[in-house]
Amino acid sequence: MLVMNSKEYICRCEEVTKEEVLQAIREGKQTLKSIKRATRAGMGACQGRTCSKLITTLLLREGVPEEEALELDKARFPLVPIPVSSLEIGGEGDV
């Protein structure tokens, strides 16, 4: 039987709850990046694709100014998970 609990999860990959995100906001975190560093929300396999919108909503609802609340986290290589073996790319320049 599937055991359910009453927690609301904001980040499914890292299992971060709404309460944890709200706690970080109460401690003064105002951006996706700083909430990620404090709670791990957005550090998982999907890199914040699902939770970033939910967190932005919470930030705005908690009265964080739009400039901070709407600031996006940087999308970085590799964008989708890729195995270490596929890093065997040569050449010069950046990814």
Binding site: M43, G44, A45, R76, P78, P81, I82, P83, V84, S85
Partner: peptide, 11 residues
């Protein structure tokens, strides 16, 4: 044995 492990992010 880690060659199939997924990379999530770089910095």
């Amino acid at each position: 044995s880690l060659l199939n492990l997924n990379i999530l992010r770089s910095w």
